[in-house]
Design a protein around this nucleic acid. Sequence first.
DNA 1: AATAAGTACCTTGCAATACAATGTAGAAGT
DNA 2: ACTTCTACATTGTATTGCAAGGTACTTATT
Lengths: 111, 111
Amino acid sequence: MISSQMLKGMLEGCILEIICKQETYAYEISKLLEEYGFGKISEGTIYPIILRLQKSELVKATVRDSNSGPKRKYYRLTEKGIVSLYEFKVNWKELEHAINNLFIKGGNEDE
Amino acid sequence: MISSQMLKGMLEGCILEIICKQETYAYEISKLLEEYGFGKISEGTIYPIILRLQKSELVKATVRDSNSGPKRKYYRLTEKGIVSLYEFKVNWKELEHAINNLFIKGGNEDE
DNA sequence: AATAAGTACCTTGCAATACAATGTAGAAGT
DNA sequence: ACTTCTACATTGTATTGCAAGGTACTTATT
């Protein structure tokens, strides 16, 4: 399980990416995150993030009926959301490089 | 600059790795982190982390004179510290895989 | 001797965020 | 009736990075 502290700042970008790939809704996002290997991400985590994304106008919602349960809110990226997702990617690359730089240069690769 | 939110949960492990590679002190750690590409990490960030590491007995300190300035506190890993560093590495790999899984599978690789 | 700059330590208070816990509600099966 | 799965949302807590502030020693400059 990925530590919750390590996920801080990551999930927002990951959810943007998921929405970018396909118009989707919160409940499905939680299932997708699990499939991608993030482990079980609580709904108490996901819904506040999506509310934040809406408030900052990175995503927009459309309510549609479901054939099995309550209505769903489908999200899609706005222009701002696309820019923000790009910035996240750049940021992630920076972090990945810095950490791998630190861990690889020191020898001790056990993988 | 790596976003401060993304650094959460990362720095502790990174500082453990730096101390693992060489007995060193806080001020030098801050310089090393910058060299590795983490950007300028505030001392208000580093000192609390090291205090935490000491309290949880992951590192131990030895005070020594410096030839240029106040005395330095040199840190080294304890057994618990070595275990904790290993766990961090495993954790990091998991996160890296999950995120790259998400970002690569979706096409859209611009690098 | 007074000032500045670099080294080196530490603490306080704030803001952001993941998440457990809790609640609402519809649909479908038993 | 009941349970389960779907699907939404809120509240309170703990953790953590960091700006801002403080102490103190050494060396170089004025």
